[in-house]
Simulated assay, not measured.
Amino acid sequence: MTQTRQAKPAISTTADVPAVELRRVTRTYGKGDTAIRALDGVSTSFPNARWTAVMGPSGSGKSTLLHCAAGLEGVTSGEVLVAGADITGASDEELTTLRRDTIGFVFQSFNLIGSLTAEQNVALPLRLGGQRVSARDAKEVLASVGLADRGKHRPRELSGGQRQRVAIARAMVTRPAVLFADEPTGALDSSSAKTVLALLREMVEQSGQSIVMVTHDPAAAASADSVLFLSDGRIVDHAHRPTAAQVAERLAALEV
């Protein structure tokens, strides 16, 4: 059963507090003989101002780890802290506030609203939070991802790489403590993927952004500062700045 202990998240942005921390986290789906343990006592932390990639074979638990770390799913046992806040038993209202103000999300499918322009998509999180947003604010964020001249375009008028950069701008407009990315280059061609990965690297280096990214692509993982490997719901390896070939070799060994 998912824990229901109530928490009062108290966000910290000091350098010595990890962007995300998991303590003995388990996540089980189902009951009895059909129960599946997607995460099995995972303890790890993701440092501030660093980019961590999470990899593993299909069914290893990497997407579940991302969802639990971001508060999208509850845990069966253990604790999850985001920017120092224990969110393990946070209420729906507290989690909504956390996801709006402290966490940014980027997904493979972009999740842009087709009827809105790029500027309007970027401004949406702030508007949903009841904040006034000027066109200048949206333009500045779009300019930071290289789309200063695409603000009035709707998603259908943009390439896949441009749409993903709009999605990144939307995620960053609230200045989140941590950015969670789920296969952010999975739907892109190689050229667009390189552009997006270069943008993520720039965000880490120049803005001190913390990023946790799930990917199946060794080249994308090699762009990160470190790579965490999962297998059967457990952390089995960790590599600092590996090459794409080293990542592919380790992943192939896990799949075997």
Rank of each mutant, 00 (worst) to 15 (best):
T2S: 14
K8N: 15
A10N: 12
A10E: 14
I11C: 00
A15F: 01
D16L: 01
V17L: 09
V17G: 12
E21Y: 01
E21K: 14
L22W: 01
T26C: 15
Y29S: 11
G32F: 03
G32W: 03
D33F: 02
T34G: 00
I36S: 13
V42D: 04
S43A: 01
S43G: 03
S43H: 04
S45M: 08
F46I: 10
R50N: 06
T52A: 11
T52F: 05
A53V: 02
A53N: 02
V54T: 01
V54F: 01
G56Y: 00
G59S: 08
G61L: 05
L65K: 11
L65G: 11
L65D: 08
H67F: 13
A69Q: 07
E73T: 12
E73L: 15
T76L: 12
V80D: 08
V82P: 11
G84R: 09
D86I: 10
T88V: 10
G89A: 13
A90Q: 09
E93D: 15
E93T: 15
E94I: 04
L95V: 10
L98I: 12
R99M: 07
R100S: 14
T102P: 02
T102G: 03
F105N: 11
F105Y: 14
F107G: 09
F110G: 10
F110W: 09
G114V: 06
G114E: 12
G114D: 15
S115Y: 09
L116Y: 13
L116N: 11
T117P: 11
T117I: 06
Q120I: 04
V122E: 04
A123N: 07
A123T: 07
P125T: 02
L126S: 10
R136V: 12
R136H: 12
A138C: 12
L142E: 06
L142I: 06
S144D: 09
S144R: 13
V145D: 03
G146M: 02
G146H: 06
H153K: 11
R154P: 08
E157N: 08
S159T: 02
G160H: 08
R165E: 05
R170M: 07
A171I: 06
M172S: 02
V173R: 06
T174Q: 14
T174F: 00
R175I: 00
P176E: 03
A177T: 03
V178H: 05
F180L: 08
P184M: 04
L188T: 05
D189T: 08
S190A: 15
S190K: 13
S191D: 14
A193H: 03
K194M: 04
K194T: 08
K194Y: 00
T195N: 12
L197W: 01
A198G: 14
L199K: 09
L199I: 06
L200M: 15
E202W: 03
M203N: 06
S207N: 15
S207R: 15
Q209T: 15
M213N: 07
T215A: 01
T215S: 00
H216N: 04
D217M: 01
D217Q: 00
D217R: 01
D217A: 02
A220L: 00
A221Q: 02
A224D: 03
S226R: 14
S226I: 00
V227Q: 09
L228M: 13
S231D: 15
D232G: 10
I235M: 11
H238M: 10
A239W: 00
P242H: 08
P242Y: 02
A245E: 15
V247L: 01
R250L: 08
L251W: 04
L251I: 04
A253M: 13
L254Q: 12
